[in-house]
Amino acid sequence: MGIVDVIFWLISAAAIGGALLVVTVRDVFRAALALAGSFLAVAGIFFLLQAEFVAVAQILVYVGAVSIVVAFAILLTRDISQGNRTQGSRVIVVGAAIMAVLFVVVVGVVAYDTDWSDRDSGLTNPDAIAALTGTYEAFERPSGEVVLVASTDPDAALPGVFVDSTGWLGGLIVRDYVLALQALGVLLLASIIGAIALVREQAPE
């Protein structure tokens, strides 16, 4: 067991422990803080997997924005600091059963779909790389090393798949899936306008 494994288990324990605290702690604000800690630990796992961009996006979006929205919602909730913190749902068993089934299904599907044979060697199967990367092409060097070659700039290619995950993701977002990005922008704009329309002060008649 290398030091990376030790770090992985520590971070995983933090992530799962934080998630457990979220659902077991009675105080909602402490639960929100535990949620932020759990998000942070997940970002740590992304860092460990060398997906730096996803890790930082996780911190930026989840720790920096979602947790703060949650905490702020708690701050603005009236009388929440004076008792009445218990969740009194009678159908808790039904809910727990549904969630357990969903959890098993999701984990099962992901585990079934994953190609576990590449687990240790990194992605070296050229077909898998070609399927994953779309516009990028897998290219086997004479030494047997598989590199990714961007169709525009073959010299810039680096060995391994996720060496420059940021540039790769950037290419996907603003080149291959730019229509989806624009649609998302329109959706966001619509929701912002909707929010403004909802909270606008009514003009006196």
Binding site: E52, V56, I59, L60, G64
Partner: peptide, 17 residues
């Protein structure tokens, strides 16, 4: 790290919490 700039921005936002 190759996303250091984003890292700084992300970490800087955490003090609101």
């Amino acid at each position: 790290i190759n996303v250091a700039l984003l890292f700084i921005v992300a970490i800087g936002g955490a003090n609101v919490l």
